[in-house]
């Protein structure tokens, strides 16, 4: 496959492509899923993270 004889190599090549396809399909299916409301704790966290960044 792909001009490569050793199965241990063409399999890796194939799995790279297939795992990317898996990521693409998963991303498309779940594109709009999982949107949670921002809770007060998220906001507190983000504000403090910003402070840490500023101090660096």
């Amino acid at each position: 496959m792909f001009g490569i004889e050793a199965p241990s190599i063409w399999l890796a090549y194939l799995l790279c492509v297939l795992s990317t396809v898996l990521c693409v399909v998963y991303g498309i299916i779940n594109w709009n899923r999982g949107r949670g409301e921002i809770k007060p704790e998220d906001k507190t966290w983000l504000e403090e993270e910003k402070e840490i960044e500023e101090s660096l």
Partner: peptide, 22 residues
């Protein structure tokens, strides 16, 4: 992971991240 807004952003990042790493 902590700097994302919600799970949705992680889901979307899977799509682009997979292509990017490849």
């Amino acid at each position: 992971f902590m700097t994302v807004r919600s799970k949705r952003e992680l889901n979307r990042a899977v799509l682009i991240g997979g292509i990017f790493i490849l």
